[in-house]
Design a protein around this nucleic acid. Sequence first.
DNA 1: CTAGGGTTAG
Length: 749
Amino acid sequence: MRLPLKPLKLPPSGAATLRSFSAEPHPSPPPPPPSLEGPDPSSHISQTLSLLQTTDPSSWTTNTTLHTLLSSLSPPSALKIARQLPNYQNALHFFNHLRSTSQPSDSISLAFQAVLEHAKRESPDSAGKLYELYVLSKDQNTPLSVNAATLLIKCFGQAEMLDEMIMVFDAVDEEMVNTDVLNLVVSGFLKWGRFDDALKMLDEMFETDSGYPPNSNTTGIVFSSILKRNWSGRSVTDEEICKLVSRFGAHGVYPSSIWFTQIISRFCRNRECEKAWVVVHEAMNSGLDVEVASCNALLTGLGQERDFARMNLLMKEMKEKGIKPNVVTYGIMIKHLCKFRRVDEALEVLEKMRDGELGIEPDVVIYNTLIDGLCKVGRQEEGLKLMEKMSLDSKCNPNTVTYNCLIDGFCKAGEIERGHELFEQMSKEGVEMNVITLNTLLGGMCRHGRVSTAMEFFNSMREKGLKGNAVTYTVLITAFCNANNIDKAMKLFDEMRENGCSPDAVVYYSLISGLSQAGRMDDATFIVSKMTEAGFGLDVISYNILIRGFCRKNKLDKASELLKDMEKNGVSPDRVTYNTLISFFCSNGDFTHAHKVMKKMISDGLTPTVVTYGALIQAYCSNDNIDAAMKIFRDMSSSSKVPPNTVIYNMLIDSLCKNDDVEVAISLMDDMKEKGVRPNSTTYNALFKGLQQRNWFEKALEFMDQMTEHACNPDYVTMEILTEWLSAVGETEKLRKFVQGYQISASTA
DNA sequence: CTAGGGTTAG
């Protein structure tokens, strides 16, 4: 049933309900025409009020003074009186009295609105109470004022009484519906995650000439709901967000700059830079003042996609539109120049900033980015100089990050001592160190095989009160695993939990990897169960590691169990998974299963890689089936378009030479040259062995020259073969020259 | 702006 609702004029105070949900000031309705009232409406109201409060409701019908007062009651006064009555019960009596005395329906409506307002304030379960009253009003055919409807919609929306909410909304007269009412409905749906229902309401708002077009509150409600971390509804795709922004934009409304920037960042994070680009340009072209923060978000995304062209274009557009880059903008440009090792260009930007050419002073982040960039390309000495230089720039003192970058730079270069010196300089200069400083130094020590030094250092830091975090333990656990000290790694894992440091996924991954590598599959399985208990899942790489571990132990049953587990957990096998299995079957000489897996791989939409073919070629070679190996080799480059690499050629050349097919091996060397695949020392070693069998000395000399020419360094195997062979034929002079050439090429390299 | 791991052919 649809209630007849008439639009009502509202007293100024009537806007209160709207104001509570609307950020925009509601336009004040005109004051009620004085002609309806007596000479003094406020005294009229106070007289009525005092009479209502001093007499019993049961006597109201017979009270002639009251009758006279109410006979000239205007609807706005009815609202005021009902509101000023002390409580809900009084207001309800008043409302009932107005009904029984056949007051104008406008007055009854507004009195009912006040009853609802009282009920909302007084009742602990206001939504339930309001619903009762709403049903009552429907039964009594009391028209709802727009504010009463608004109040009900808002209240039901908050109480997740969405059917009731929409029932009230449907009861509102079309001509009374306005943007604010629709905003409340949309907000109610979104609060409970009902995106699709909200979308239907938005569709109505977007319709041309809807009479209730979206406004900035609408965008605020929509985007703050769906972008919040605790969004409970179905996941909203970037596509949908993009469309929404455009549709709002067509109505000239945009999300606030904060949400706009968040949307841009989200698109960029999801590698949907194109959408971010479109949305920003739509906004710019519609004349919106896009803030520099939004542009910065887009620049970051473009940088991640290596789209330098568009980065520069955006910078140009910003300039045209008068959007001034800030220090963050230059930070992004510098960061991405550094990332692509264009450190000198990044330094030029710094110089321009220091010259005052850009009107923006460099800050500590700019310096840190550059110092890190220098360190990452092995120019840590320059980084150190830049740190000294920034100190001379007033108020730009090195901080913890500055030192961390430099310590990492020196450690990565193997200069652990310099790293340690910087660490000591830090405390001398009063720069606080943090857990990243500790982890950086520990990582440096571990990488250079100084695991026990690292452990001692960690212990001394702990004594000083600095606790390690999950990263610290990952560094140490990995180092102990690599040093084949699995027991110590396991001990550290227990220790970290005793110390109240909860392991994260990476800690588990590194331990699983270490244990699998060491062949301790039972321990690895145990850690997997611990990991699952802790609520972490395995990713495809850790599955691959485990599968490989079990294959090496010849436990195919365990490996296939893991495959089933993957499927159950929604982790799809990748090329490596299949290659691991193919290698396993190949190494067992089981070509039937190897080919079967390869078929499955292809049917899963994965193309075989050079590793797949390599496994097969390797297996056929060790089975002395060089013809089959050569057939695969030809297949891969012709039909499947997987170019063979050095490893493939090495296996074939080695096999051919061992099989005394040196001519074919040499033809493969030519093939390599033609295809631009570089031979390495393994290639030459295989070939030299074959040539030695045939005693093709001249050919060997040719390839020795080629090695020198290509700056391919001989290894100890090369030296062994050549020393034996050349001294046997009394050509040690040739060998001496060869070694000399190697030394020259090594020094120029 | 800074720190952590991990696979497949040899």
